[in-house]
Design a protein around this nucleic acid. Structure first.
Lengths: 259, 259
DNA sequence: GGTCGCACTACTGTCGACAATCATACATGC
DNA sequence: GCATGTATGATTGTCGACAGTAGTGCGACC
């Protein structure tokens, strides 16, 4: 007797997708960079990290090469790998790429008139609204990035989702690389409201404009031109972490998961 | 006495960028996939390829992980890595991503009114025109992909260029994966002419439309819906290669190059 | 006093080897 | 005859070890 939740027309046995050890390590490294456990510009101590993860250097190095390909780690011969620095000189490049990915995702959703997709984005937007009521800068930043990833993911394009998952971490790295520390704007929800409204109106050009405006604001915040111009925007700053030697969790082989 | 070509205001010593062995191997693997030396779905025989490249398995595996991240290789635990198959079920996803990247690149060029960028694209277009006069399917395909990469590269965005360099190989893989073999349309230049004209007119929407149309045509060609509909388009087909065991060239450490 | 040179240390880059796993072919039983 | 089980071969995944290299601190020399 099949499980009740199994669809009748589904294939008898789904293709099981066993993540390889390298997959797990790569995910762990991305999370460590995203959370700041691996600080910007810090060298990747292979022996130490491999010991913390409970693996050898070989699979660790292989996983790290994936992050090098993503641009999250930089490799110099003889000097190993370091967590990439996303300085002010790279902000335009990064956020222009985000505009490309996110505007097209919005266009796809609108072209398809995909109500379910909008609902997913709405859900992420609601979460952002609730989080923005508090003063936890990191939580707000997480909700912000979650919203943008939800937008791209709702477009249901594997390529764009993959790009975005890296862009999210790169954006976080840009914040960490900022001299001003980790800062989020208090009025962050306003800028997102425009995107949300355009989606609900099925207005592709308005959505693209809203996303572009949002990215310009983000670059302005990170470069600090607002302060220079004397424009005052209320912000929330996270107190700098002790930046101590954060330990990474050991790799635990999960049970077989469905793809 | 400095070299005449050195700009006077340039820094005294440029940062030399020494490519690592893994860089070289990764490039070699990408070229092998692009050229078809590594056939679609073929397993990556590590010992054999490492021997051909004159390196050990370790750096080869590290380089291969970069291609796994790009999606050019697929890894299954216990079965190693294989050259990815880009079947018909993934064509929409792939070409939708190309639309996202290429339309935004065109928008960037047009927004900036970048004449030099248009000239670069024009140059690639001219080369495509000359090549399309012949009947070498592979050469036409190369010129086609070169054109699209030149378009994105002219936008001068590192992220988009990186995405596109992978998308180019993925597109080639889609052709190799096609049941119909490697086929290019004889009227391929017409479709590019629309893109080129829109760029020269600084018309962003027309460029986006032309690029979208071009991708639809490409998907139609690869899925063969044109034949099914009885629409006849003149094509050039490449005779299938012997698919023999193509040998990869050994890795030779190049001299120090400027970044 | 500053700069150059040298030795030491720590780490990376690469290799070969071993064990575990998977695919294939063959033999066996129903 | 078909399905099941088994043995074999090849290949992957992982590890430890070694050599080469970059960084660091100290000392000597100009």
């Amino acid at each position: 007797m099949p499980h009740p939740s199994a669809h009748r027309n589904a294939p008898a046995v789904l293709r099981v997708h066993r993540p390889s050890t390298v997959d797990l390590i790569a995910t762990e490294l991305r999370n460590a960079i995203y959370s700041g456990a691996l600080a910007v510009r810090s060298p990747l101590r292979e022996v130490e990290i491999a010991r913390q993860l409970g693996v050898s250097r070989s699979p660790l190095r292989e996983a790290a090469q994936r992050l090098v390909q993503e641009g999250l780690l930089t490799a110099k011969p003889g000097q190993g790998m370091r967590v990439a620095v996303v300085g002010e000189d790279r902000l335009d490049d990064l956020f222009e790429a985000r505009v490309a990915v996110e505007t097209h995702a919005a266009r796809m959703i609108i072209d398809k008139h995909d109500g379910a997709a909008v609902a997913k984005v709405q859900s992420a937007f609601d979460h952002l609204l609730r989080t923005a009521e508090g003063n936890d800068a990191r939580a707000i930043g997480d909700a912000d990035l979650d919203f943008h990833f939800a937008l791209v993911d709702a477009a249901d394009n594997a390529h764009l989702s993959r790009y975005m998952s890296t862009l999210v971490v790169e954006t976080r790295l840009a914040s960490f690389s900022s001299k001003r520390g980790y800062v989020v704007r208090k009025d962050i929800t306003q800028s997102h409201h425009g995107i949300m409204a355009a989606l609900q109106d099925w207005d592709a050009e308005a959505a693209a404009d809203a996303i572009r405006d949002h990215m310009v604001e983000a670059v302005d915040r990170l470069t600090g031109v607002l302060e220079e111009r004397g424009v005052h925007v209320e912000t929330v700053t996270e107190e700098p972490t002790p930046a101590g030697a954060y330990a990474l969790g050991p790799i635990t082989q999960p049970l077989t998961e469905l793809s």
